[in-house]
Computed example of a mutant assay.
Amino acid sequence: MRRYRLRAIGVLVSITFASCGEWIYLIALNLKVYQQAEQAAVAVAMLYMIKPAAGLLMNSWAGSFIDRMDNRKLMIGLYLIRVIGLMGMMLTDSLGQIYLLVFLVAAAASIFEPASLPYITGLIQKQHWQRFNSFRAIADGSGFVLGPALAGVLVGIGSVDMALLVNILLLLLAAGICLVLPSVKIPIEESGQRWIQIWRDDWKLVAAFSKKFAALTLLLLLFSCMTIMTAAVDSMEVAFASEAIGLSQAAYGVLVSVAGTGFIVGSIILSMVTRYFQAIQLLCYGAAAGAIGYVVFSFSYSFLSASIGVFVLSAALAFSNAGYLTYMQEHIPENQLGRMMSLYQTIESVLIIGMTAVLAGINAMTDVAIAVQIGCFIMLLIAMLLFYLSKRRSLSS
C-alpha cells in the first residue's frame, strides 16, 4: 500500500510540474511572439488557432495507437517532444519557425491527455479514481496559480528564454517521474490489417459504442459543448475585461489571480466532500455552478462582480472536471479510452474553432459584452440540460 501511495503521489507531482510549465510556456510564448512580430496583436491571436488546429489533426487518428502502446513510454516520449520544441523556440528568431514549433508542442500536448487517462485508470485502483481526480484538480490548480506568477518573475528578472528554460526543466522532471513509475498492462490488439483499415475500424468502434450507449454519449457530448462554449467565451475575456468592465492590465492580472485562487479553493473543498457525491453529480452540479459564474461575469460592470463571477466559475470547474474524468473511467473500457477521448476531442476542436468564429462575428456586429452574454446564456442552457439528465437513473448508475 505504501508503494501504491507513492506511485499516486508521483503522478500528482508530475501533473503539477507539467501544469506549472504549461502556464509558464503560455505567457512566455505570447511575449516572445509579440516581441518578434514587432508588437502585432494579430500574431499573438494566431497562436490561439494553432492549438485547436493541432488537436483536430492529431486526435482524429492518435487514439488508434494510444490504445495499442505502452502509455507510460508514450507519455515520456511526448514530454521529450515538447522539450525539443521549446529548445527550438529558444534558438530561433524566425516567426514562421516559431509557429511550426508551437504546432509541434501543441500536437504532443493534444495526444498527451488521451494517453495519460488510460495509464492513470490502470495505475489507480477503481475505488480511488474519484478521490485521485479530486487531488488531480489541486495539482492542476497549483500550476494555474504558480505558473503565471513564476513566469512574471522569470521574465522580469531574466528573459522570455529563461522562462522557457524553466519550463523545459519542469517537463524533464515530469518525464523523470514517469520513468520510475511502472508500466500498466493494457490489452494490445494484434492485427495484420493496414493502418488505414485499423483507423476506419476504430471510428466504427466509437460510433457503435456511442450508439449502444446513447445516453452516456449524449451526456459526454453535452459536457464537451460546455467546454466548447468555455473556450469560445475565454477567447474574448481580455477584450471584455478591458472594453465592457474597463479594467486596466494590472487589474486584469489580479482577476486572473482570483480565478486561480477560486480553482484552488474549489479543489480543496472537492477533496474533502468528494466521497459524498457520485461522479455524475460532480460533473453536472459543477457545470451548473460554472455556468452561473460565467453569467455573473458576463453581466459585470465592476471589478468586484467580475471577481465573484470568475471565483465561482473557477471553483466549479474543479468539480466538473473531476466528475467528467471519473465518469469516463467508470463507463468506458480501459482499452478503448484513448480512442474514445481522441475522437470526441476531434469533434470538440472543430466546434471550438467554429464557435469562436461565431462569437467573433457577433462581436463585430454588436459589441463584446453582447457576444459574451450570448455565449454564457448558451452555456447555462446546456448546464440545465445536464442537470436534468443527472436525475435519470440510467445515467446515475
Rank of each mutant, 00 (worst) to 15 (best):
residue 5 R to D: 13
residue 11 V to K: 08
residue 14 S to M: 03
residue 20 C to N: 03
residue 30 N to F: 00
residue 36 Q to D: 09
residue 37 A to S: 15
residue 40 A to E: 14
residue 42 V to T: 15
residue 46 M to W: 13
residue 51 K to T: 14
residue 60 S to D: 04
residue 60 S to M: 11
residue 64 S to Q: 10
residue 71 N to E: 10
residue 74 L to P: 00
residue 77 G to D: 10
residue 80 L to N: 03
residue 81 I to Q: 06
residue 81 I to G: 10
residue 88 G to Q: 01
residue 89 M to R: 00
residue 94 S to K: 11
residue 95 L to H: 05
residue 99 Y to F: 14
residue 100 L to G: 06
residue 101 L to E: 02
residue 105 V to T: 12
residue 105 V to Q: 12
residue 106 A to T: 07
residue 108 A to Y: 08
residue 109 A to K: 12
residue 111 I to M: 15
residue 115 A to R: 02
residue 117 L to K: 15
residue 119 Y to E: 02
residue 126 K to P: 03
residue 129 W to M: 09
residue 135 F to K: 11
residue 139 A to N: 03
residue 139 A to F: 03
residue 140 D to M: 13
residue 141 G to M: 04
residue 143 G to P: 04
residue 145 V to M: 14
residue 157 I to D: 03
residue 170 L to D: 01
residue 172 L to T: 01
residue 177 I to H: 00
residue 177 I to M: 02
residue 180 V to H: 02
residue 181 L to R: 00
residue 181 L to M: 10
residue 188 I to D: 08
residue 191 S to C: 04
residue 191 S to R: 08
residue 197 Q to S: 15
residue 197 Q to G: 06
residue 198 I to P: 01
residue 212 K to Y: 05
residue 213 F to D: 14
residue 214 A to P: 03
residue 218 L to E: 11
residue 219 L to P: 00
residue 230 T to P: 01
residue 233 V to F: 04
residue 239 A to Q: 14
residue 243 E to L: 08
residue 261 T to I: 15
residue 262 G to C: 07
residue 263 F to E: 06
residue 267 S to G: 09
residue 268 I to K: 09
residue 275 R to T: 11
residue 276 Y to S: 08
residue 277 F to L: 15
residue 283 L to D: 02
residue 287 A to W: 04
residue 287 A to H: 04
residue 295 V to F: 02
residue 299 F to T: 12
residue 302 S to Q: 09
residue 303 F to N: 07
residue 303 F to E: 11
residue 305 S to L: 15
residue 305 S to P: 00
residue 311 F to K: 03
residue 319 F to A: 12
residue 321 N to P: 00
residue 324 Y to A: 07
residue 327 Y to Q: 03
residue 339 R to E: 04
residue 350 V to K: 10
residue 354 G to H: 03
residue 360 A to W: 01
residue 361 G to D: 09
residue 365 M to A: 13
residue 369 A to D: 05
residue 370 I to W: 09
residue 373 Q to A: 14
residue 377 F to V: 15
residue 378 I to T: 11
residue 381 L to I: 11
residue 382 I to L: 15
residue 384 M to K: 05
residue 385 L to R: 00
residue 386 L to F: 08
residue 387 F to A: 01
residue 390 S to Y: 08
residue 391 K to L: 12
residue 396 S to V: 06
